[in-house]
Design a binder for these strands. Structure first.
Lengths: 306, 306
DNA sequence: CTCACGCTTGAAAAGTAATTTCATCGCTCT
DNA sequence: AGAGCGATGAAATTACTTTTCAAGCGTGAG
């Protein structure tokens, strides 16, 4: 303790209460009347632009308020902090809270004239929502049954067209890595041709957002008729495809916008389902899956630069 | 600028992007592999207890991590701040945000004996986190530049291998739908062969999580040497690939677990970046993109059952 | 009206924290 | 084994913060 203010000693360690950042504005208002003119200037500046002030050093803030370093430190003390350093930390925290709390929670559609910053935020937000919806809407008993069928399958065929074909390939890539026999078919003719070979103990998976994609339903029907266990990953559990699916995994439909039609955004949801299938199967075949996984990554090692 | 790290000058003013506090944990994960042991200790400590660390001085944090002040400052620089002082401010901000948000949610790794219900919840949670991290860590100015290049490109080639090839195909499918000329290459030989044709006004995009996939770097280098504008979508912005990329879009690394290696989960982050690119380009070419988009959906109508 | 007292203020000194330098140490690759 | 390079921390330097102190300013009594 070295200085006095209004005759009262201003402690270096005002121990009583560690001041909460959120209460800062209130504290400024409370104490303003007791402050001297230049201290008021500092306090006001700090309260009105926490973020901006957090970026300044004592000297910077002194200049900005047209006062001196000493005054800034005095004000910090009065507000309950040991010194300016700590006030500054509190300001940064306050700014962050304001930014988080004041979060506009982007809900509007992506528009043509949105800035890229908005686009990034909105896309991320939409996809997060989509994931949450999918997880909430997924029927775990159906998933369980699908995983069980896959784990013991002799052979797995996956049908997907267009964007869904990529999802199918993703699933197949993963299943191959844990030693299962899986094929992805994007060509409807070849898909049907192969479906004819399917029989009991085999698993056929069809991926279609609309649930009405003929080119994908057809091979699933054929596999179904030949006795294979069939799984549908679709956004329309009541679609035509349901008739030929033993197990239905429902994906969720994201918000549509002109630049981002539903069919295009269904991907996220489908991929989550695919990952759930994969992890489920990997768990149930852990004895063989784990070594196969590590082997597949080691095999790729020399494909990377040192 | 005074010091060097891994042969690269570490700027006193790493101007490009002021790192957002929220992205800090993600950034730690992204950069951890490039760090030295003691820097990793500092980074980890900081990421796991932002609030506690915000209360410490350089010396304090150095002691707590069993390192030196110099190492703490070096780590701060690597994480994108001018020095420890600024990292400390960011930590205070982060701590405040966490306290406000409050929701720590499921953070445990996916284990072999998790029930499927847990698997679904954890996967969804991880992917959501990954999306948030990616959005927070994405450099919008780089994205802006990439979008501009794509919008006026004569021709677009996309290189991706393995899981990244699917992401590349997704991007190409979308670009084709709005009338751009785009090709995806998964075959490294064909990719290089095609890259030779690239010239000024063309755009080449390489997608690799590790940033070290030779088969993908090679075609990008060739395209770069032939004058094309090159874009890298990678989780390692400091990898070899950076040398041949005009614009770098950084993807975020999700938490790893045994059943779900980083390479496998990088997909989510990459797809978000791809979507941002697509929407950005669609906005800037709206006159042609909008009609092309609707036309492409009408064309598919008869492929669905009534 | 002015002078004296005491609070307010900022310049500069003193002190503390952050940054840079540099020598050493340890690891890897011959 | 040892050469070379990167990693590391102790110490020097620099930047920032805090304290001191003397001058300024206002007020109110004489």
């Amino acid at each position: 303790m070295k200085e006095t203010f209004k005759g009262v000693a201003v402690e270096t360690r005002p121990a009583p209460a560690p001041p909460a950042p959120a209460a800062l504005a209130a504290k400024v208002r409370t104490l303003a009347p007791t402050m001297t003119r230049s201290m008021q200037r500092v306090a006001e500046t700090v309260a009105s632009d926490p973020a901006g002030c957090a970026a300044l050093t004592v000297t910077g803030l002194a200049e900005r308020t047209g006062t001196s370093e000493a005054t800034v430190v005095r004000t910090s003390r009065l507000l309950g902090y040991p010194g300016y350093r700590d006030l500054r930390l509190a300001l940064a925290a306050l700014a962050a809270q304001q930014a988080a709390g004041g979060a506009p929670a982007v809900t509007a559609d992506i528009a043509v004239d949105d800035s890229l910053v908005d686009v990034v935020a909105k896309l991320a937000q939409e996809e997060q929502q989509c994931l949450a919806d999918t997880a909430a809407g997924l029927d775990v008993s159906q998933l369980e049954a699908a995983v069980a069928a896959l784990s013991t399958a002799r052979r797995i065929d996956v049908y997907g067209i267009g964007a869904s074909s990529l999802v199918g390939q993703d699933l197949v890539q993963k299943l191959l890595r844990i030693g299962l026999i899986a094929h992805a078919h994007a060509d409807p003719h070849l898909a049907v041709t192969n479906a004819v070979q399917m029989r009991t103990g085999d698993v056929a998976i069809a991926i279609t957002h609309s649930g009405r994609t003929t080119d994908v339903i057809e091979p699933l029907r054929v596999a179904f008729d030949h006795g294979a266990t069939t799984i549908a990953i679709t956004g329309r559990p009541d679609g035509e495809i349901a008739a030929y699916a033993d197990h239905i995994l429902t994906t969720s439909t994201a918000r549509e916008s002109e630049l981002r039609p539903a069919a295009m955004s269904s991907r996220t949801s489908q991929l989550l389902v695919v990952d759930c299938l994969f992890i489920g199967v990997a768990q149930r075949t852990y004895e063989t899956a784990a070594p196969a996984l590590s082997a597949s990554y080691e095999a790729l090692a020399h494909r990377h630069q040192p």
